[in-house]
Structure formats: structure tokens, C-alpha cells
Amino acid sequence: MRAAALLAILLATACGATANTAGDWKPRGDVRMIVPFAAGGGSDLAGRAIATALEKAQPGLKVTVENREGGSGAVGYSALLGKKGNGNYLLATENAILSLPLSGQVSFTRKDFTPVAKLAEDGGILVVKKDSPFKTCTDVINAARSGRVSVGMSGAFGVDNVIFTMIEQKTGVKFQRVPFESGGELVPAVLGGQIQVALLNPGEVIGQFKSGALRGLCVTTDKRYTYPEFADLPTAKEQQIDVSYVQFRGFLAPGGLDGRERAYWEQAAKGVTKTAEFQKWLKDNYLQQAELYGDDFGKYLEQLDTALAPVLKKPS
């Protein structure tokens, strides 16, 4: 009996040691959050908001944001690719993680990274400057049928490219694309007449909307915004343009992490949406909270990847 009792104690001790070992990983020193686009755009705002919320959700955690722009996001993603197995690095991700590989411009895919969390969704608004002759998205399509319409994009393979490609496929028109590195560069480009139309997130244009410098033509969400500042804007579908697409906001870790590192970051991510800082970012930038973690986020990426494949075919 004494032997059986001793065995039970040893087994319990061993199980406890295993459980503690599985949950004792923490980042060593500062964590680096890579933002694969320039400062000032929606991706930069998202990365900084998530970094701040992570610090609030995990007392003692320090997250430093680093902009690694270039190649429509490829430079930043490639930087994370080189940190395989290093749990001290993160990346503020959005739809470029899928559109870049589908474009055939990079060698990596979503499978090379560790999906941590999808936290929010960000809709798009087609905007023009206040004195533009375009009053609706239908006006833009009609103009493109008979002439040149220049459209700006924050990255040649970003969400803007996806939406404009969808519009082209649905309507048969062709736009003249003018790529920029971030949404922050698109606003002055529209205001300065370098481009006629841009697709921007609400948070990127709210100041110009309030001042009257920019006007919205339609939104690319399934339903109209409930935010009063944008509630009057019709959807593209309401204007007989059968397109809807949103940009997700979240973060990845490098590939090759072990179970303890994955568990730490997924748990940390679940605390992000509970912070006042994150909720303020949602409200200030007119986003919708939309959460998926770990494997569920990975499945979402797989499904979206499949849906995007017909839109962004690799060059033959």
C-alpha cells in the first residue's frame, strides 16, 4: 500500500511538472511587432493598436513596432519568414498574406507562418475629391467603359487590388492602377489629383470626410455602415456592382513555434479585445470586432485563400 501511495505521488508530481513546463514560456526581452507597410495607413494603425493592447493585456510585456515597408508588404513578411522558431517576433497581418502568394510574386505562403489571431474587420470606401464629376460608383464604371480612370492602391497586391480586380471581372472594365505603399499616401494623391479614385478604410478618411475634402461613392461591405458618419453611403451591390470584400486585421507569429509559444500568444491575443485601448481603436477607426484564434484563424485563411484563387491567378 505504501508503495502504491508513493507511486501515486510520483505520478502526480510528474504530471504537475509537465503541466508547468507546458505553460511556462514567456518572451525573453522586448517583442518586435513588424508592420509590413509604411506608417500612417490602416495596417500601421492596426499594428500599433494591437501592440499597445498586448502590453495592457500582458503586464510586463514590451512590444516595439517596426515598419518594414516595401514590395506591397513582401519585405515585412519576408523579414518574419527569417525569424522561424523565434517567439519574440510578431507581424500585423491582413489580406496581403494571401494575395501576395497568389500573385506569384513571393515564394512564401500562409503556411510558413503561425496564425495567432484575427481580431477585427475593416471595410473599404471608394472615395474621390470633392470636385470630382463622379457621384456614384456606377459613374466610375461608366467612365471606365469609355475612357481612362486612374485608381490608387496601397500595395500592388493588397486589398485594393483584390477589390478593383473583382469589379473589373464583374463589369468588364479596366482601370489604370497606380500603386502606393500605404493608405496614408493615397489620401494626398487623391486630393492632389494624381489619381481619380481610391479605396480607403473609414479610419483613413474620416478627417477628410468631416472637412468635406473627400466624398464617398460606395462601400464594399455586404451591408451599409451603422456608424452615422458613413451610414448614407450605399453598398456597391446597391449600385448594381456585385462585389463585397473586407480586410481582416490580426497578427501572425513566425513558423516553427512549439506548443508552449503558440499557447502563450493565443492566450495573450484573447486578452487584446478586452482592453480599453483596443476598443477605442475599433471605435476611432470604424472597424467591426471579429475574433478567431489559432487553428480557427488558420481555417479562415484557408477558406479565404480558396475564394481568392480565381480572382488573383498567378501569371502563366
Rank of each mutant, 00 (worst) to 15 (best):
R28G: 08
A8N: 07
K111I: 03
N285G: 04
A19H: 13
T226P: 00
P101L: 08
A3F: 14
F134G: 03
R260S: 15
A309P: 01
A39G: 10
K313C: 00
D160S: 11
E291L: 12
S107G: 10
V272I: 13
K313A: 10
C15M: 15
E277G: 07
L80Q: 04
Y77C: 06
L233P: 00
A96Y: 01
A51F: 00
L287M: 15
G147I: 08
S132T: 05
R148V: 11
T93K: 00
R28N: 15
Q194K: 15
G152V: 04
G47P: 02
D258R: 13
A5N: 09
L126F: 13
V106T: 05
S103C: 01
A143T: 06
L81G: 09
V35P: 04
A120W: 00
K118R: 15
G76T: 07
S244T: 11
K111D: 14
L102G: 03
Q239T: 02
L61R: 11
I50L: 04
N161P: 00
T138D: 13
N95V: 12
F37Q: 10
N67H: 12
P315V: 01
A12L: 15
A307F: 12
V197A: 07
F175S: 03
R224G: 03
T221D: 09
W281L: 02
Q194L: 12
N95E: 11
Q176H: 14
V187I: 13
E66S: 10
V311T: 07
E69M: 01
G40C: 05
V106K: 04
A5L: 15
C15R: 15
A3Q: 13
G82A: 15
R260K: 15
N161S: 08
D296I: 01
K26L: 09
A22V: 10
Y293V: 07
S107C: 00
T64N: 14
C15L: 15
V65N: 03
R215T: 02
F248K: 10
W265G: 02
M153R: 12
W25N: 08
C218L: 10
P179Y: 03
M33V: 04
A143F: 09
S316T: 00
D284M: 05
